Amino acid sequence: MAFSDTLLAEAEPVWAAQYDHPFVTELAAGTLDADAFRHWVEQDYRYLLDYADVFSLAAASADDEETAARLAETAHRILADEMDLHRSFAEEYGLTPADLEAVGKAPTCQAYTDHLVRTAREGDLPTIAAAVYPCGQGYLDVADYMAEISDGEHRYTPFVEKYTSDAFRETVAWMRDLVDELADEHPGAHDRMRAAFHRSARLEHDFWEMAYAREQWAVGPRKQVAVDAD
């Protein structure tokens, strides 16, 4: 069995929980509350900025030119293509790219990006590949499920179309192949890869919950009070 198949089999309860999450089922039906989707747009935009950086850092860790080039290309695609979806949805809320970049990360988004960036800076390429893989495979599988249960077109249809597109499928297939190739080449990295994969998978599920609940920090920073000079 390929290592990616083993990881996905182990994570089956997480995938099932994603399929059952109300953010997923309501988005598929077109009934998801607009504020919940706006929260996803804002937070996922911030997430993708770091996600692209992780692929760039991974490219610097690659031993061969072909892998390095593909990792760098994927970083570019995230910034130039995938984030266009977020920018188009943001326009419906009157949000500009500058508005999106100014959004503060919610706790779950912060935890997820911290995990990925730390892995990219401190881990080896097999561990980085395993850490980023659940995002691609998870969105493809969830979007395929949404397409199956959707009754027709609605305002969220572009989301489903983006993450079931041929281009996205090809990228996810490449990510999966990379995980398997690196697992075969580095059997001593399996435990690290497994830990990174499962942490990311759990955070994928929690990201849906974060958006659905409009998660925010419970307590914000104390505001500074201006003091007049004597």
Results as ranks from 00 to 15, higher is better:
M1I: 11
M1F: 12
A2V: 09
L7N: 04
L7Q: 01
L8N: 07
E12S: 13
A17M: 04
H21R: 03
T25P: 06
L32E: 06
D33I: 08
F37E: 02
R38T: 06
V41L: 07
E42C: 13
L48P: 02
Y51K: 01
A52F: 03
D53P: 07
V54Y: 03
L57M: 14
L57H: 04
A58N: 07
D63V: 10
A69F: 12
A72N: 08
A75H: 09
A75T: 07
D81G: 12
D84S: 07
R87H: 09
S88G: 06
S88N: 14
F89M: 03
Y93S: 06
G94E: 01
T96L: 00
P97Q: 01
A98D: 14
D99I: 00
L100N: 01
E101N: 11
E101Y: 11
A102I: 05
V103E: 12
G104V: 12
K105Q: 13
A106I: 00
A106S: 15
T108F: 02
A111R: 15
Y112M: 09
T113K: 02
D114R: 13
D114Y: 11
D114A: 15
D114H: 14
H115T: 02
H115W: 14
L116Q: 01
R118F: 07
R121S: 04
R121A: 11
D124H: 13
D124T: 15
L125R: 00
I128C: 01
I128R: 09
A131D: 06
V132E: 03
V132Q: 01
V132R: 04
P134F: 12
C135S: 10
C135L: 11
G136K: 01
Y139C: 03
D141S: 13
D144F: 08
M146T: 09
M146V: 10
E148D: 14
I149Y: 06
S150P: 00
D151S: 15
H154F: 09
P158D: 12
K162C: 00
K162S: 09
Y163M: 05
E170G: 02
V172Q: 08
V172P: 08
V172G: 01
A173K: 11
V179N: 01
V179M: 01
E181G: 14
L182R: 08
L182K: 05
A183Q: 05
D184C: 04
D184E: 15
D184G: 15
E185L: 09
G188I: 05
R194F: 04
A195V: 13
A196Q: 03
A196R: 03
F197C: 05
R199T: 15
E204A: 05
H205D: 04
F207V: 06
W208I: 02
W208V: 05
M210Y: 05
Y212E: 04
Y212M: 02
R214G: 01
Q216H: 12
Q216F: 11
V219F: 06
G220V: 04
R222P: 10
R222G: 08
V225S: 09
A226G: 12
D228N: 15
D228W: 14
D230I: 10
